[in-house]
């Protein structure tokens, strides 16, 4: 009961902050709201009993991404998003097409919660019964993520690390950014 109430509240907060991000025009406010959004997602992961996914989401989304975005905003001059351009039909068509293709791709997947899906008939029992002996990790989600799918996670870590190094190298400039023609000496 308690978990249900918290879930409903957090999901409502998630929708509210997503709409807030969409409506915000000030990039600084947007970056802060993204941190908040990410914290909410991490909390939901935690309630779904996936603590290490929540750990990653909080560290990357709330911590590193927010700091990098704010640092990028400090290095650039514009603080406000350009006024939104008018409705463009070609962008709409591309979006609908991509969305349609992605939706078509999901048709091959087994239905959500289908008891006859291969995951439930073959793998789930193995994970639940043998997971503890196979990996020695007490949490099942962590065992699947970090041990059974270890190479996948390694690939993700490589991508995130490369992206982080790239952004840090871009942000590290000798010259201090000039803030709108104003000199830095105060």
């Amino acid at each position: 009961m308690m978990a249900l109430i918290i879930d409903v509240f957090l999901l409502l907060f998630l929708i509210a902050s997503a709409i807030g991000i969409l409506r915000a025009r000030h990039l600084f406010a947007m970056a802060m709201m993204f941190g908040l959004y990410s914290l909410l997602v991490a909390s939901l992961f935690l309630l779904l009993d996936a603590p290490d996914v929540a750990f990653t989401e909080a560290a990357v989304g709330t911590g590193i991404a927010t700091v990098l975005m704010l640092a990028t905003l400090a290095a650039t001059r514009r603080s406000s998003e350009k006024p939104r351009s008018r409705f463009s039909p070609s962008a709409m068509i591309i979006t609908l097409l991509t969305g349609g293709l992605l939706f078509y791709g999901t048709l091959d997947l087994p239905n959500f919660g289908d008891p006859n899906a291969p995951l439930h008939t073959e793998m789930a029992a193995r994970f639940i019964e043998q997971g503890q002996q196979d990996t020695g990790v007490p949490n099942l989600v962590t065992a699947v993520l970090a041990s059974y799918r270890g190479f996948d996670t390694l690939g993700e870590v490589t991508v995130v690390f490369t992206a982080g190094v790239g952004v840090l190298l871009l942000l590290k400039r000798r010259r201090k950014p000039v803030v709108r023609g104003r000199s830095n000496a105060r």
Binding site: R25, F28, T62, T66, V67, A71, S79, S80, V179, R180
Partner: peptide
């Protein structure tokens, strides 16, 4: 993380009045 994020944000606000005022459409 909360602490780190807020310190980072305040460090950037400190850089002049640029960030302290929200201008909607420039």
């Amino acid at each position: 993380l909360n602490f780190v994020g807020v310190v980072a944000a305040l460090r950037l606000v400190e850089r002049g009045s640029f960030y302290a005022t929200e201008r909607i459409h420039v």
